[in-house]
Write a protein that binds this DNA or RNA. Sequence first.
RNA 1: CGGGGCGUGGCUCAGCCCGGAUAGAGCGCACGGUUCGGGUCCGUGAGGUCGGCGGUUCAAAUCCGCCCGCCCCGACCA
Length: 478
Amino acid sequence: MSDEKLTPQSENFSEWYNQIVLRADLADYAPVRGCMVVKPYGWALWENIQQALDKRFKATGHVNAAFPLFIPMSFLEKEKEHVEGFSPELAVVTIGGGETLEEPLVVRPTSETIIGYMYSKWIRSYRDLPILINQWGNVVRWEMRTRLFLRTLEFYWQEGHTAHATREEAIEETMRMLDTYYRFAIEEAAVPVIPGRKSQTEKFAGAEMSMTIEGMMRDTRALQSGTSHFLGQNFARAFDIRFLDQNNELQYAWTTSWGLSTRFIGAIIMTHGDDQGLILPPRLAPIQVVIVPIYRDDAERSLVMQVVDRLEQELREVFRVHVDRRDGVTPGFKFNDWEMRGVPLRLEVGPKDVEKNSVALARRDRPGKAGKSFVSQQGLVQTISDLLKEIHQSLLDRAIAFRDSHIHDVKDYDELKQVVDEGWAFAWWCGSAACEAKVKEDTKATTRCIPLDQPGGSGKCVVCGEPATEKVYFARAY
RNA sequence: CGGGGCGUGGCUCAGCCCGGAUAGAGCGCACGGUUCGGGUCCGUGAGGUCGGCGGUUCAAAUCCGCCCGCCCCGACCA
């Protein structure tokens, strides 16, 4: 499977990424340009992401539903910014059943329009609000350049769409879902994203305000890892989503939408991975503990397997466990193989362990001997449980340390230009699109977000020197 | 869409410039043995009409034309 060494991150980060996706068995290239096949191991990871998020959505009062893949072209055209933003990347169906369609159907690039249409049918009274619906599905955006997980023509995601009676409530929802993503990223994936607001140029097509969680990858480039949009009344007006309020007055609803996609798998890979391969955060890893039996001959084998089988039964109750029963490959090969696949914890059982009632544990976040320990078979569930928590924390700590050491509080424009080559710049910004554009032209860096966490006070825009009240991150992004 | 690179067994590539007879290697795969606490070793074997179409030629993986696809860099983007 993985016979050769990975290209080191430092040598060619893109190449490292591509190799890891293929060799860790997460996904493969599909026969259609820009499309991917998510392989079972990658899909298992996505399923764990889905479960973790879905639980959080349900806990905040949301329900799931499913809307059609096809959307009438005219729907997209009802919201001006929306159609302008998406029309260049639409896949359009013009023939169905051998006949030219009266109206072309677009394969959904996102579902605000069709859901907006349905909401206008469903909403009559303030008593019908709020509507809090999420959908797990796939969408298509005809991108120029694609990369597995990061940008594919078709991708899997969830999109939440809510409608509210008041502006305040919709904004509250927008922020709640941003916080949901933020906590998911930190608590489940150990990915220390920064929550903040998108600039007007970077916001979602059709939104009044877009919130984002931005992650720093190990090449210091930024990855937008999840978004939550306050759509104002834009889509309500376009689709006539109106209701009678308590005073019997007709009002437009306030809507939000929020999404997180399979791109997040890319975030996990590029936040934690090292030159040995993938490192998966314990709470999301499809396999949390892999057991590698070690033996020389049939006699040792049966001895060892007895213990392995017993431990498997015991651990299976609590963890996602896999026993590597492959014969004909050496333990050393298996070690490397599972490290490539990012399994957070490896458990080795050999003849010596059978004798001493012990096992060897090797943690993925600390390569080599440093991460290896020998522990008793007694109380193993607790030992492993503690260790997995520790691994989660150490992954998070490491990622935070990396992120913070590559964020530079820049004082002037020269420093900004220098810094964005190998990090993020944190700077005062006046909010003008012209200053944003200048930075982009000079450095290829864009504003990533205006973080919620602001130092307060005011300063001078790093580009034009005009008064500024907010600080923003500038970085090169995926 | 602009710039660059590439398409030869499953993978990575050699061969192409300078056309010539059964198209090679390493890895992987199958079988047998050997090994097994950090990517074992040996043997045997299966597997490719060289991206597609057309042209030149006695003869094309090799030369010419068109097309298709992929990767990297840019513009666009979850």
